[in-house]
Every structure is written in structure tokens, then in C-alpha cells.
Amino acid sequence: MTDVDRVLSESTENYLETILLLVQKSPVARARDIALRLKVNRSSVSGALHDLSGRGLINYEPYGFVTLTPEGTEIATRILRRHEALRDFFVNVLGIDRAEADEAACRMEHGVSKAIIDRLLDLSTFMETCPKVGEKQARGDGYRCREAAHSLEKCELCVSRCLENVKNRVGKGDSNKMSVTVLSELKPGEKGRIEKLAGAGAIRRRIADMGVIKGSLVEVIRVAPMGDPIDVKIRGYHLTLRKTEAADICVQKVV
């Protein structure tokens, strides 16, 4: 939530939203239409409009037309997006009736942070597109697709990988246990998928710059003759690092 979000009251937000809806239909909004839509009387409308114009969110002359300033448009768009996100979630995912969904969204839209809305949107897209629904991704991300762009070909690849995983687990009799460990614990020849980079500061950034990023595949190739730095293959090249640094890299063993 931005600072502006915080200082706006619920009714102010409703005013902005309504103005935006009206402006989208015709170039300008009139105080009368606003009063009609919000079901309030004309005098309280003109008071609120004075207030909004004082804050620089709308352009308004008494008895004239109302338009939104760029800042006002931005805020109103955000509110509308929240409203639509909530409504769509109710309709598409929860299967609620549209009118009821609209009403609930109207009341909820003011108290929900942007982060929650974003996750909700992610979840909606995920539920609608991913056939893997039900497999919780153990990354603290909730249900959402890791690939930014959805294409059916990618989905096909992903699902087949998922099936293979299940087969492997069944074959190993290891139904649900995740083998999360650190890179320094892997033996030469073993592979892992990077889960997390612990550690701090410049060295962590350096390791990330070298391509050691969450989700990439890494294979331990060998250990140096004197036993310390290890040689791993990542993104098709050889990277060497000491075991102390490798101990800060969490990986999930890949069989």
C-alpha cells in the first residue's frame, strides 16, 4: 500500500472508482450521475468533490463537469483492479453468482493489500490454466505457475515432468519425502536443483551473478585433490567453490 492509499477513506475510494467508471463511458462525469450511482444526496457529493479536488485528485468546478487528474486516474485504476480481481476470483474460482460477487468485492476492495491481490490473481491464473492443480509447490509461493508466460506446449512438458517425478517416487517407495540438503553434501556425480541461497553480502551476489539461481540444476563433478574446493557444473560450465560457500546453497537432490 502506498502512502496515498492509506490516507484515503473507504468513501473517497468509492468516489474515485465511480468517477473512473463514468469517465470511461463518456468523457466527463457529472455530480448528478455520481449521486445516482452511489445512492447518496447531491449535497454530500459536492462536499466530497471539493475535498477530492483540494487533494489534487480530480478537476472540479462547482456545477461543472468532473474529470480525474493523472494521479487520481492512477489511484482509481488500482481500486478498480482490486475490485475486478476479487470479483473474478469469486466468480471463476469459487463459483459465486456475479451480482453477489460484485457486492462482496465492493466491500472487501478497500481493506486488501496489493500483495494479496497479486497472489490472488496468480492463483486464479494458475487454477484456470495448470492441469497440475493439487500438487502444492513446496516453495512458500502458494499455488501459482513459475513460468511467467503460459503456453500449452510448456504445460505439456511440465506435466510430463511431473508424471515422471511421481513414477520415480513410487518406484523408490519414497512417497512424499523431499530430500533437501546443501550443495557441499552432494557427492561427485550427484545432481540437485537449487532451492535457496543463504549467506549474505557481496559473496552471495557474486554466486548469483555466476548463474547460481533458484531453480537451476547443478551437478557436483569432483573434489579438488586436497579435498576442498569442489567443481560443479551449472548452466553448462564448470564453477569451483569452497565447501563453506557450497554449504550456504540449499539444493533438492534430483535422482
Binding site: 559473496i203 557474486r206 567443481d231 560450465y237 564448470h238 564453477l239 569451483t240 569452497r242 560457500e245
Partner: peptide, 9 residues
């Protein structure tokens, strides 16, 4: 200092 180095081909 940490040791992070590439082994070039």
C-alpha cells in the same frame, strides 16, 4: 575471502 572461480574449457 570466498573462492568462486570458473574453470574455463
Amino acid at each position: 575471502v570466498p573462492f568462486v572461480m570458473e574453470l574455463p574449457p
